[in-house]
Design a protein around this nucleic acid. Structure first.
Length: 291
DNA sequence: AGTTGCACCTGGCTGC
DNA sequence: TGCAGCCAGGTGCAAC
C-alpha cells in the first residue's frame, strides 16, 4: 500500500492517539512478519510511554520514554486502525467493516484506545532499537534523501544520478538515493516533469556534475506530487485507508498511474498513456510528452 | 560498485 | 461455479 504520502497520512492519524499515551499491553499474534519480531517485543514495550511519532522515508518511528524507538514499516499491505476506547466510539463515515483475519499486533493504550496492525501479505515489519543506534541500523544507514526535506533539489539529484546508466524509473525507486518514492509517485513525478521513465538517470547531470534543466524540473515535481498527495490524505487503492477508516483521495488526481490507454492529461498533448514493465514493475507514461 | 532479477506472501480480479 | 494465471502500493539479497 504505502509510499511516503500514505505513511505520512498514517503518522498524522496515529500521532494524536499515541503521543503522550502509555502502552498498557502489546499483543503480538505471530512470531514474525517479514522478519522475526525482536526478542521480548511485547515485554519491552509494555509500560512505555510514547514520546513522539516521526517518519523517515516509509518508516514510522515511535520514540519511547526508555530511549528506545519502535520502528514500523507497512510493506505492501500493512495498515493501522484505531479503535477508540472513549464513549464516542464512532468510526469515520464509510469506514470498512473490520477484517480481523490478519491482525498481527494490537497495542492497548492507557487512554483506552487500541491500535491494530493488519497486514495480509506480511511484508511489513517492526523493530525495537536504541534511539542513538537508529542511524546505524542496517535498514536506515543507507537511506537516501528525504524528498520533502530541504536537501532535495536539482543539484542533489544531479549529484546522485551522475554517471548512472540505469533508468530514471529505477533510480527514483532506489531508496538509497531518494527515500520515499514508490511505484505510483515515480510515474506521477516523471509525467509532471515531462521526462521519460526510460531516460538514463545520468543524463540529468552535465559532464562536470552540474544539474541540467531537467534535474531542476524533476526535483520540483517530486516535491509537488508528494506534497499534494499528503494534503489529500494519500491514495486509496484496494484496501488502503487512513487510520480512522476514511479514504484518501489522491488517486483521483493520478495523471498516468493505472490509466493505461487513457488520454494524456498534458494540455494539447493528445498522447495515450502506455504501460510498460521496468524492473518487474509497471510504469505508466506518455511517450509523446515525456522525453 | 552498479545493475538486474528473484524471493517473500495473500488476495482480488480476469478469462476460460 | 471453479480454477488457473496474473497482478498488486516494497525491498533485501544473490548473482552478474
Amino acid at each position: 500500500m504505502p509510499e511516503l504520502p500514505e505513511v505520512e497520512t498514517v503518522r498524522r492519524g496515529l500521532e494524536p492517539v499515541m503521543v503522550g499515551a502509555r502502552l498498557v499491553a502489546v499483543e503480538q499474534r505471530r512470531p514474525d512478519l517479514r522478519f522475526p519480531f525482536p526478542d521480548a517485543f511485547s515485554e519491552r514495550l509494555a509500560g512505555r510511554r510514547i514520546v513522539a511519532l516521526g517518519r523517515r522515508a516509509k518508516y514510522l518511528v515511535a520514540d519511547l520514554d526508555d530511549a528506545n524507538v519502535l520502528v514500523m514499516h507497512l510493506g505492501m499491505s500493512g495498515s493501522f486502525r484505531v479503535e477508540s476506547g472513549g464513549s464516542e466510539n464512532s468510526p469515520a463515515p464509510g469506514a470498512p467493516q473490520k477484517n480481523t483475519a490478519h491482525d498481527h499486533v494490537v497495542f492497548a493504550l492507557s487512554t483506552g484506545a487500541r491500535i491494530i496492525y493488519n497486514d495480509p501479505r506480511r511484508f511489513g515489519f517492526m523493530d525495537l532499537v536504541p534511539r542513538d543506534a537508529l542511524a546505524a541500523h542496517p535498514l536506515f544507514k543507507s537511506l537516501g534523501l528525504e524528498p520533502l526535506g530541504n536537501e532535495l533539489d536539482g543539484a542533489a539529484l544531479a549529484r546522485l544520478f551522475a554517471g548512472r546508466t540505469t533508468s530514471l524509473k529505477a533510480a527514483l525507486l532506489d531508496q538509497t538515493l531518494v527515500a520515499g518514492l514508490g511505484n505510483i509517485y515515480v510515474s506521477e513525478a516523471l509525467h509532471r516533469a515531462g521526462l521519460s521513465p526510460r531516460r538514463a538517470a545520468g543524463s540529468l547531470a552535465r559532464k562536470d556534475g552540474t544539474p541540467t534543466e531537467r534535474a531542476h524540473r524533476l526535483a520540483k515535481t517530486i516535491r509537488e506530487v508528494l506534497e499534494e498527495a499528503v494534503a489529500a490524505g494519500g491514495s486509496s487503492l484496494r484496501d488502503h485507508r487512513q487510520t480512522n477508516g476514511a479514504l484518501g483521495y489522491f488517486q483521483h488526481s493520478f495523471r498516468v498511474y493505472d490509466r493505461e490507454l487513457g488520454p494524456c492529461p498534458t494540455p494539447g498533448c493528445g498522447g495515450i498513456i502506455r504501460r510498460i514493465t521496468q524492473s518487474g514493475r509497471s510504469t505508466f507514461f506518455c511517450a509523446a510528452c515525456q522525453r
